[in-house]
């Protein structure tokens, strides 16, 4: 009797002594958090590489309005990303990428509403909000596909190289918007983020299917929605940083 009491006391005073759950979260959730931490390191590596290479190139020294793309200095993003679908030739800097940001923020909200509905065991509401989240993710991917194809196709004027050759658009060899590295980083960083969005949409579809067939009602909880929700919010979080460091600065 006395021994049991002392063990109980030990457990209360020593949180990490075993027999308790110090992080007060399920195994799956903790592992999702640590996966996201490692993924955050990967994205940090990519974005810091962008910063590193940008710092090792000269910046455009004149006024912003006089900017012309050249391989000699790093481009000003608002002068490069200024196109919007169906408005050909109109200079609308960063508008399209702003729309993409709002789409992703909205799909993050619908995801968190799905999580909230899951905690209430409300299958109808989870179904509704998961569907909106999937729609948001697909809309974002569609926008990115357009953004990529526009970036690859390029402008009518193009850029004249020093040997007189005029190049249009960007790929892994040439880039009419600035140094070739700028295009490589664009493809790598937004591509890696886009891959994350695509796999997030796939996960959301799987969860949506499970919700509709009632898997989580049988299981008694909707924790899978929360775990995939963590991933989906992380994708939004990364976009917030990509938006700032690639498009604004």
């Amino acid at each position: 009797m006395e021994v049991t009491a002392s063990i109980e006391k030990e457990r209360k005073t020593n949180l990490w002594g075993g027999g308790t759950s110090p992080l007060k979260a399920s195994y799956g959730k903790i592992m999702m958090w640590f996966f996201l931490l490692s993924d955050a390191f990967t994205f940090s590596g990519l974005l810091i590489t962008y910063g590193f290479l940008r710092y090792s190139y000269p910046a455009f020294s004149g006024p912003v309005s006089a900017f012309k793309p050249s391989v000699d200095y790093w481009p000003i993003p608002e002068k490069i990303f200024d196109a919007v679908p169906f408005l050909h030739g109109v200079h609308l800097p960063l508008l399209f990428v702003g729309i993409m940001t709002f789409i992703l923020i909205l799909s993050s909200v619908t995801m968190v509403l799905a999580v909230e509905a899951g905690q209430r065991m409300d299958r109808k509401d989870v179904t509704k909000w998961m569907l909106w989240t999937i729609v948001g993710g697909l809309a974002f991917l569609g926008c990115q596909a357009w953004e990529w194809s526009h970036f690859i196709t390029g402008t009518e004027e193009g850029m004249a190289l020093s040997n007189g050759v005029i190049i249009h658009g960007a790929n892994l060899q040439v880039n009419e918007y600035g140094p070739p590295l700028f295009a490589s980083l664009f493809f790598f960083i937004t591509g890696f983020h886009g891959t994350h969005v695509a796999s997030g949409v796939l996960l959301n579809v799987i969860i949506f299917y499970n919700v509709v067939v009632g898997t989580y009602d049988k299981r008694g909880h909707y924790e899978m929605v929360e775990k995939v929700g963590l991933y989906w919010h992380f994708v939004d979080l990364v976009w917030v940083f990509v938006f700032t460091f690639f498009y604004l600065i």
């Binding site: 949180l15 007060k24 903790i30 993050s108 968190v112 929700g229 919010h233 992380f234 939004d236 979080l237």
Partner: peptide, 16 residues
């Protein structure tokens, strides 16, 4: 805001 509220980290255990 995204990490603390949407990902709910603010309301988790301090150790986490």
């Amino acid at each position: 805001y995204i990490v603390s509220e949407f990902m709910h980290l603010k309301h988790e255990a301090k150790a986490l």
